[in-house]
């Protein structure tokens, strides 16, 4: 009855939509039954959805209003994981989605504005964890570095600062690659366009690390059921 991953940060342009679609495409290619919920009024995922395309069987549901919680609730009986993309600013829809979430992924570029927004989002989720709605079942939170340039000092510095401050950060990253915007033109992802390419391998590593967490057990239990 679980299996919801929400990508959230109050900073726009951190890679939420790109990562949401990439993870959805990855798990879809592996034979899981993911669904994407586009809770961002900009509709980055919904606008590029092509029912006749190669990801046509990966459903994208646009719901930018607070009733997104009901949509997630309905979808998770048939799909796992339900991956929710949210808007790049603090809003009620994002909070409503997070209340229904098992794992919150906070993407951030190695830049100070992204770090500030990621920490603010982390604090917001911790506040949600203090509500009655989440009593006894806190939302798991992990940060993930996006659009990194390999070997740069800033990426290493941001990682070391976040880790030393005790924030949960995935070891895997989503490096900056042209494969994402290229595939995104047709609403696709590197895993779909070039499954053996470097970007697809990056996403596979990220997904594998996510799967190591308890969400793995949740998804496995759902598929057995």
């Amino acid at each position: 009855m679980f299996g919801v991953i929400t990508l959230a940060t109050s900073k726009g342009g951190a890679g939420k939509s790109t990562l949401a679609r990439a993870l959805g495409a990855h798990w879809f290619a592996l034979g899981h039954r993911p669904a994407l919920v586009d809770a961002d009024p900009q509709g980055s995922l919904a606008n590029r959805y092509d029912a006749a395309g190669r990801l046509g069987a990966l459903p994208v549901i646009a719901e930018p209003e607070e009733r997104v919680g009901d949509v997630i609730d309905e979808l998770r009986s048939r799909h796992a994981p339900v991956i929710v993309d949210t808007a790049g600013f603090r809003n009620r829809t994002t909070i409503a989605a997070l209340v229904e979430t098992d794992l919150a992924l906070i993407p951030l570029k190695p830049a100070v504005e992204d770090v500030d927004a990621a920490i603010a989002t982390y604090d917001l989720i911790q506040e949600i964890n203090q509500t009655e709605e989440r009593a006894g079942r806190p939302i798991k939170i992990v940060m993930v570095l996006t659009m990194t340039m390999r070997g740069t000092v800033i990426a290493r510095h941001v990682r070391s600062q976040l880790e030393s401050a005790g924030y949960p950060l995935l070891a895997a990253e989503m490096p900056n690659r042209v494969a994402y915007p290229e595939a995104g033109i047709e609403g696709l992802s590197p895993t779909t366009v070039d499954p053996d390419g470097a970007a697809a391998r990056d996403i596979a590593a990220l997904a594998q690390e996510i799967m190591k967490s308890e969400i793995h057990q949740i998804m496995a239990a759902k598929e057995v059921a």
Partner: peptide, 20 residues
């Protein structure tokens, strides 16, 4: 039914769309 704490949290931020 939304708890008081979550209600306060929701009221502290704007809606995602102008549906008011």
């Amino acid at each position: 039914m939304t708890s008081k704490k979550l209600g306060a949290l929701l009221r502290s931020v704007p809606p995602a769309t102008a549906a008011e």
